[in-house]
Amino acid sequence: MIQDVITRLETAAPSLAAVLSAEDIDALTKGTAPKSGTVFVMPYRERAEENPFASGKFRQLVHVQLLTALVIRRHDDTKGGGKAVSFDTRKLEIETALAGWSSDPRNKPFELVAGQAASLGNGASVYVQTWQTTRYLEN
């Protein structure tokens, strides 16, 4: 599912510098600093409902949450006002690409759950959005 979201953002949000996967938010603060305008797609959490079938078929609904983390880097923006404006423009493009879209017709469309900005230090900030969809576990 993460690769599906990456592909969707690459095609439907062309102004993004790059769309990559990451393990978690902490991984963004380590290693080489990403280019401004890069979005990372990360797993967040899954919550499964009970299998409704007593015997035979197995079909379990799983609520899936993913994170998108938009990195904006500006060294000349000590108060962050320019970064906040950049967040608005690019997060709208991410929202337009993902809201109501589904990677599989059996899954519910993606919905935005929450969003929050944070400083990564060294002139970089990140705007993280939580997205939710579903998938089925079947056999």
Rank of each mutant, 00 (worst) to 15 (best):
D76V: 05
L98S: 01
A17N: 02
I2F: 05
S21P: 14
R135I: 01
G81V: 09
A124T: 12
L66G: 02
L137I: 12
Y136L: 10
E111G: 08
V39N: 12
T29V: 13
L16F: 06
G37W: 13
P14Y: 07
K57S: 00
T29K: 14
I72L: 14
V19R: 06
Y136C: 02
L20G: 02
L28Y: 10
E111W: 03
Q3S: 15
D104C: 08
A97Y: 13
T32Y: 06
T96C: 00
W101I: 00
R59W: 01
E50D: 15
G31W: 07
A18L: 11
G31C: 10
N122F: 12
A22P: 04
W131G: 03
E46M: 11
F87H: 10
T32N: 08
D88T: 11
Q116I: 06
F58N: 01
Q132C: 01
P14S: 08
A97Q: 13
G123Y: 13
E50T: 15
L137Q: 11
A18I: 01
V71A: 06
H75N: 08
V128L: 11
K108D: 06
F110Y: 13
V64I: 15
G123N: 07
Q132N: 04
L28N: 06
D76R: 13
S55D: 10
T78Y: 04
F110S: 03
K57G: 02
I2N: 10
Q3I: 04
N139T: 09
G31H: 08
Q60L: 01
A33S: 09
F40V: 09
L16S: 01
A118M: 15
A48N: 03
V126K: 13
K57D: 06
Y136E: 05
R106L: 11
K83Y: 00
R73Q: 08
K91H: 03
V128G: 02
E10Y: 04
G56A: 06
L137P: 00
K57E: 07
T32G: 03
L98I: 03
G121R: 10
E10C: 03
G82H: 09
D26V: 06
H63S: 05
